[in-house]
Computed example of a mutant assay.
Amino acid sequence: MADMDFVERVAALYLLWKAEKLRRFWVHQILQRRTQLGQFHRLLQELHLDDGRFQRYFRLSRSQFDELLSRISERISLQDTNYKHSMPPAERLSICLWRYASFSL
């Protein structure tokens, strides 16, 4: 009987360890570093340094982009959840403008 209790305890510990290991990697490491390595975060910082490139990329000047963002940021912002962080309004607006600018050529 003592051997069966030991086997049951080892099996229970293994299942708990396996469940914890699966839970630990819910989001892939690449996606966790999106805020440092993602296109929006790196590209927008570089575009803000050059007015001409910013204008060609978004079809708006930086001041127009900032004005538009200040007007609509409350409407396009979403709430963070326990499962994921929402996109910031600037990122949502930049994706929308980039898509619109790339199709209107």
Score class of each variant (00 low, 15 high):
M87T: 08
M87K: 14
W17Y: 10
D5R: 13
S70W: 04
R23C: 04
R34G: 00
L37G: 00
S77H: 07
R56Q: 14
L68P: 00
Q29V: 05
L78D: 03
S77K: 13
R53P: 01
I30P: 01
D51F: 02
D5K: 07
S61V: 09
L47M: 09
Y100F: 12
R56D: 14
A19N: 12
F54N: 12
F103A: 14
G38C: 02
V27C: 03
L31E: 11
G52A: 08
R42I: 03
S77Y: 01
D50E: 09
L60H: 09
R23D: 10
C96T: 13
Q64F: 03
V27H: 05
L44E: 07
R71N: 06
S73T: 06
A12H: 06
L105V: 09
L43K: 15
D5M: 07
L68F: 02
W98S: 15
V27S: 00
F58W: 04
V7K: 15
F65Q: 10
S63T: 15
F40A: 14
D50H: 13
F103M: 11
S73V: 01
R99M: 07
Y57T: 13
A90E: 09
T35S: 07
Q39C: 10
R24E: 14
R53L: 12
M1S: 13
F54A: 07
L105Q: 10
A19K: 12
A90H: 02
L37F: 11
I76Y: 01
S94K: 12
K18P: 01
F6D: 11
D51P: 03
L22Q: 13
R23I: 06
L13P: 01
L15P: 01
